[in-house]
Amino acid sequence: MNRIQRTMIRCKVEKEKALACFLTAGYPTPEELLPLVCAIEKGGADIIELGMPFSDPMADGPVIQLSSQIALQQGVTLEWILSQVRLIRQRSEIPIVLMGYLNPIIAYGAEKFFNDSSLAGVDGIILPELPLEEQGRYADLISANRLANILLVTPTTSTKRIVLIDKGSSGFLYCVSTAGVTGSPKSKIDTNYIKKVKTTAKKNPVLVGFGIKSAEDAKRAVLNADGVIVGSALIELIGKGKSLAAIEVFVRRIKNGMQKR
């Protein structure tokens, strides 16, 4: 059993809603990655998602686009990201998920990348460019390296497809809250849709992401889900130069706000 499964089981047993926090690896500077991971863990995050920056991130909104561009300008590579994962693993057992686009992985060598990720201490992979139709050999490589292959469902996914995606997914099911890119501003969380996903997906815990900006959004999202993923809102705070202490407070407010009192 890997760290994600253990964490999700613990959350279930303790009736706790899970919080995954997304960071663009290398933003605002490469030096700040480890202190940020520390602060987020202290704030109560259950899972860390590291975004692997790509030059053309077509599934991302302006906030993550810009953070990716800045990270790339500072020379961030997949090798460097894996080296940081190894450093995190020296002192923490928090589950780590890598999220990114396919091309840098192809350039690195897909087989080698998933193997190196597993050895470095990565627990799961999210590739938003890989719908069911293209899972093929990548899904095999991911599971062969004992990594969770976290798949996404969206408001345009049919019920029949949700079943198939849930089957193919492991670790958790990533429920995209709105049809849109990350950090979509117009998002009003559709609780009926989340309920549909939660009742359809029998295999995996359901975490809701895209457009979760506040403790209120998170609370609404977990009415019918097992947790949330916060990305753009966090990157925006970091971009504004907020202190590590302020980041920790933000994370804690979301984590605590989701729990039943």
């Binding site: 599934a59 719908p131 139709e133 293209e134 996404l152």
Partner: peptide
């Protein structure tokens, strides 16, 4: 049927677009 010309092509897009 999968949208491939030999090795090339495919549908590497976010899930949101698959139904479209």
């Amino acid at each position: 049927k999968r949208g491939y010309f030999g090795e090339y092509g495919g549908q590497f897009v976010p899930e949101t677009l698959m139904s479209a």
